[in-house]
Design a protein around this nucleic acid. Structure first.
Lengths: 129, 129
DNA sequence: TGATAATATTCCCATTGACGTATATACATT
DNA sequence: AATGTATATACGTCAATGGGAATATTATCA
């Protein structure tokens, strides 16, 4: 992934907040939406932007779309994510996002679904899984 | 300096190249122009953009405007500059820029002028110095 | 099948950004 | 004062971006 593309993904505040969340692990759109407090359309659009540029990957779990950072990352991406993760600790928006993240993940069954590398749950009947 | 502002400065290729050059030390506009091969207006405009956002500082030396990264940098800026410096080594544009930079700095008297924290040379008669 | 939930897409508009051309400013030299 | 060099600004244009409102899509559930 080219360096400039990384920074283009980073250069909007909402996107930066989303990426900072995804560093901690996969998340569903509705959770991201709850945490960053932006409209559904807005969050979805930023996620599309990120997906188009290879910054995130998506899979479906029933009604949820679960986004995550790519597993295989270039050295540059990895360094910059690490750098972002460190730097974000000094700004309140990001800290606040992370504490909201904790609450979201605390909900019943959420962690289990997000942790799956693909959809394998009993409750899922999607043909796509 | 806010994190988002850093990435906004980083998210254009010409600006990223300029910043990568300035990591190595102060430079005059005409040198930057030579190295990145963009028009005078374009380079000047990007430098204005960076200056407006506190990413660079400028001083005049005779006809030259000398730009540099700020001496006092926030932790976030410092980390991201370091990260950029590392990552830039893997992409050819940046490597090529750095080798051009060497040639520019090799020219007679250039290093001396750029190294001055302010204009103190004998040949300078500006009232502003 | 119909209803609902979650997400994506389309249409529209305002803002920003990038860039070319022309012009202005600042300084040095003669 | 006139000229040359280096740099910045103004103006216009076009493309990209961000976001609201409405609608479409995909899956689940009754």
């Amino acid at each position: 992934m080219k360096l400039i593309r990384i920074y283009q993904c980073f250069c909007d505040e909402t996107r930066l907040r989303i990426i900072n969340l995804l560093i901690r692990g996969p998340l569903c759109v509705c959770h991201i939406q709850q945490i960053v407090g932006e409209s559904q359309v807005n969050v979805s659009r930023h996620l599309s932007y990120l997906k188009d540029r290879g910054m995130v990957e998506a899979r479906r779990h029933q009604n949820w779309m679960i986004y995550r950072l790519p597993e295989k990352r270039s050295v540059e991406l990895e360094s910059n994510l690490k750098c972002l993760q460190d730097c974000a600790t000094t700004e309140s928006v990001f800290k606040s996002d992370l504490s909201k993240l904790k609450k979201v993940l605390a909900a019943e069954g959420v962690r289990e679904v997000l942790a799956q590398s693909c959809c394998r749950s009993n409750s899922c009947h999607s043909k796509r899984c």
